[in-house]
Simulated assay, not measured.
Amino acid sequence: MRFCPECKSLMIARSGKMHCRRCDYSEEITDSESLKVTKTRVEKEIVIVDEDDAIPTLPTCAIRCPQCDHNVAYWWLRQLRSADESEVRFFRCVSCSHTWREYD
């Protein structure tokens, strides 16, 4: 990240130059590694670590377990992707401890 020397605003890369959106200052990009173009978004593996001791303190709801058909499960929310996307609801069956997720 580079900041404008004139107004201290964040600069953006465009056409091989760094441009300031606020004051129109621009400069050439001299370091070839400072500009990296990617065509695909790289997803990192998401690891969810749950402490089994904390599970009984989670709230419960009436939902049918897809594995054993029990009708009560613990639930919690996690923000797995970027902040502009909705959270993912996780459920864990009280009876068989099967865990599944639901998206909005």
Rank of each mutant, 00 (worst) to 15 (best):
residue 97 S to M: 04
residue 61 C to N: 11
residue 21 R to F: 12
residue 32 S to Q: 09
residue 20 C to E: 00
residue 95 S to Y: 02
residue 70 H to N: 11
residue 98 H to D: 00
residue 11 M to S: 03
residue 45 E to W: 13
residue 20 C to N: 03
residue 83 A to C: 00
residue 44 K to W: 01
residue 55 I to G: 07
residue 87 E to Q: 05
residue 4 C to D: 06
residue 22 R to M: 06
residue 2 R to I: 14
residue 39 K to F: 03
residue 85 E to D: 10
residue 50 D to W: 02
residue 45 E to K: 15
residue 37 V to W: 08
residue 103 Y to D: 06
residue 48 I to A: 12
residue 41 R to G: 00
residue 77 L to M: 09
residue 52 D to C: 07
residue 19 H to A: 01
residue 61 C to L: 05
residue 65 C to I: 05
residue 7 C to D: 09
residue 4 C to E: 03
residue 52 D to S: 10
residue 74 Y to D: 00
residue 3 F to K: 13
residue 72 V to I: 12
residue 79 Q to M: 01
residue 27 E to Q: 13
residue 94 V to F: 08
residue 28 E to G: 02
residue 21 R to G: 10
residue 70 H to D: 08
residue 13 A to K: 00
residue 101 R to H: 06
residue 86 S to G: 15
residue 87 E to H: 07
residue 46 I to S: 09
residue 29 I to H: 01
residue 38 T to Q: 14
residue 35 L to C: 00
residue 39 K to L: 04
residue 41 R to H: 04
residue 19 H to N: 10
residue 28 E to V: 08
residue 44 K to T: 03
residue 80 L to V: 05
residue 84 D to S: 08
residue 80 L to R: 13
residue 51 E to C: 14
residue 70 H to I: 06
residue 56 P to I: 02
residue 70 H to A: 03
residue 66 P to E: 00
residue 4 C to M: 04
residue 22 R to N: 09
residue 41 R to S: 02
residue 76 W to N: 05
residue 20 C to P: 03
residue 83 A to T: 11
residue 21 R to I: 08
residue 25 Y to V: 07
residue 36 K to M: 11
residue 37 V to C: 00
residue 48 I to L: 15
residue 31 D to T: 06
residue 64 R to G: 05
residue 50 D to T: 06
residue 3 F to Y: 15
residue 53 D to L: 14
residue 4 C to F: 14
residue 24 D to Y: 14
residue 16 G to F: 14
residue 92 R to D: 08
residue 89 R to E: 02
residue 85 E to S: 11
residue 42 V to Y: 11
residue 16 G to P: 01
residue 79 Q to E: 05
residue 14 R to S: 08
residue 71 N to M: 13
residue 51 E to W: 14
residue 47 V to M: 11
residue 73 A to R: 01
residue 58 L to G: 01
residue 9 S to L: 06
residue 77 L to G: 03
residue 70 H to T: 01
residue 13 A to H: 09
residue 64 R to D: 06
residue 32 S to F: 12
residue 5 P to K: 03
residue 46 I to W: 12
residue 40 T to Q: 11
residue 40 T to L: 03
residue 70 H to F: 11
residue 47 V to N: 08
residue 11 M to Q: 07
residue 4 C to W: 05
residue 99 T to P: 10
residue 38 T to W: 10
residue 43 E to I: 00
residue 79 Q to W: 03
residue 73 A to M: 04
residue 4 C to Y: 08
residue 69 D to H: 14
residue 12 I to M: 15
residue 43 E to Q: 12
residue 73 A to T: 01
residue 64 R to E: 14
residue 27 E to I: 09
residue 69 D to C: 12
residue 58 L to F: 15
residue 27 E to S: 12
residue 78 R to N: 04
residue 66 P to W: 01
residue 67 Q to Y: 15
residue 42 V to T: 13
residue 40 T to S: 05
residue 67 Q to M: 15
residue 1 M to Q: 13
residue 23 C to H: 10
residue 28 E to K: 12
residue 75 W to C: 05
residue 47 V to T: 07
residue 76 W to G: 01
residue 61 C to A: 13
residue 34 S to Q: 07
residue 6 E to V: 13
